[in-house]
């Protein structure tokens, strides 16, 4: 650990990883009005997760990512199915009230936002899983 090359990345990560996580949520939430959204946010979040594990292989995500991707699909499906209970067709957008969030401003709540959150979860889970599996694979071959 005395080698500065070995300690620089971990030190940077302590700062960068949380920032990326916050950024990903910010991108997700502002997506309806400005560049961003669930897909982009999910990729950023996945990068954060991978970076964290890259620095310290023992710090793998605690949740099973495949299960998480299924959960994301369910969230998306739930948002699509909600209008059915109000007598409207599948995937009709339902809109509710507005809330105010720092840095984002006014955010209108509705099923499309929930759907985007589902997309965010699926993309995060799958992208992170692919990279982590490959990473683990290359590590085991090293040993």
């Amino acid at each position: 650990m005395n080698d500065p090359r070995q300690s620089m990345l971990p030190a940077a990560c302590r700062l960068v990883v949380p920032t990326m996580a916050v950024l990903s949520v910010y991108l997700l939430l502002r997506g309806h009005n400005l560049p961003g959204g669930g897909f982009i946010g999910g990729l950023v979040m996945a990068s954060a997760l991978v970076l964290r594990t890259m620095v310290d292989p023992k710090r793998e995500p605690k949740i099973d990512l495949i299960t998480l991707s299924g959960a994301g699909l369910l969230v998306a499906l739930a948002s699509a199915a909600m209008p059915l209970f109000t007598g409207r067709t599948f995937f009709t957008g339902l809109w509710g009230g507005e809330i105010w969030l720092p840095a984002i401003g006014k955010l209108k709540l509705g099923t499309p936002l929930l759907f985007d959150i589902g997309v965010f979860i699926v993309v995060t889970a799958v992208a992170a899983k692919l990279l982590l599996v490959l990473m683990a694979q290359s590590r085991t071959r090293d040993n």
Binding site: G31, H32, N33, L34, P35, G36, G37, G38, F39, A80, F91, G93, W95, K108, G110, P112, L113, F115, D116, V119
Partner: peptide, 15 residues
């Protein structure tokens, strides 16, 4: 209720 057309298409129009 969205100004980012790309995102509106992705999560609403062509969800």
């Amino acid at each position: 209720y969205g100004r980012n057309v790309v995102n509106v298409i992705l999560v609403d129009f062509r969800a």
